[in-house]
Nucleic acid binder design. Sequence first.
DNA 1: AGGGGACAGCGTCAGGTGAT
DNA 2: ATCACCTGACGCTGTCCCCT
Length: 281
Amino acid sequence: MWWHQHNLCFRHPIEEDYSSGDQEEKVATIAEADESAESESVIDFHKRREILSRRPSYRKILNELSSDVPGVPKIEEEKSEEAGTSPNISAMAVPTSIYQTSTGQYIAIAQGEAIQISNPGSDGVQGLQALTMTNSGAPPPGATIIQYATQSADGTQQFFVPGSQVVVQDEETELAPSHMAATTGDMPTYQIRAPTTALPQGVVMAASPGSLHSPQQLAEEATRKRELRLMKNREAAKECRRRKKEYVKCLESRVAVLEVQNKKLIEELETLKDICSPKTD
DNA sequence: AGGGGACAGCGTCAGGTGAT
DNA sequence: ATCACCTGACGCTGTCCCCT
């Protein structure tokens, strides 16, 4: 819809850069067809769809625009972009994984053993806490995938981390056991636990594919994969929408700049006209 | 108050693309 | 060929605003 109009109404030079050779040919074909729209009424639907579907990502487009227009920020690459989902964490060392609790808090699990917990509301490093896992050796195979957080039966928050461990939010802010750092003030505390009881609703632990035998296990594995896929796609869709909004903003600012330039050029033209053609009374 | 249209945001599906 | 990722499209929901 939006992209269709964008592609069919005009071809921006930047978009041209992303067209592969045969793609350009096809676009040219469409352009000709558009010109002779009165004579040839309909463009082949499939051809059109094929062309339209081959679009560059918003990141690519915006980065091109950014290099074109100074002052427009570039969309960062994948790694920093992931960290960018949490402004509090982005200033820290790049973690390997970032997870968000159901209350909006972020947990970053670094390459080493540190777990950082941050509140999106707090600014900078202030909202960050570091936990150290003492038993974070090599995770057992098949159990390294994190699943999303949920409320457990006892009202605490749980989210699973690589290594078949569980990060559990304490209801009281008492001093934490020795295997974790204590939090202070109003901040909740978290514990690293082994998942002792049955998994909370909505949370499925990763299992080693080799351990699957019965049809029920296979079905559970399929469900788990589906949940994981949906979760990833959910996040991807959010990110895509964010990029799209950024892209539209970028285009709007570009329009504003070009309008100003255009106005200046018209004024300059008028001035030159006045100079070159003296008034004849 | 409440009905309804416009709009934004979200989750999901389907299909394309690029990397391996 | 396979996989992960990206994004358009669709349907749903919540919010805001206007009108009756």
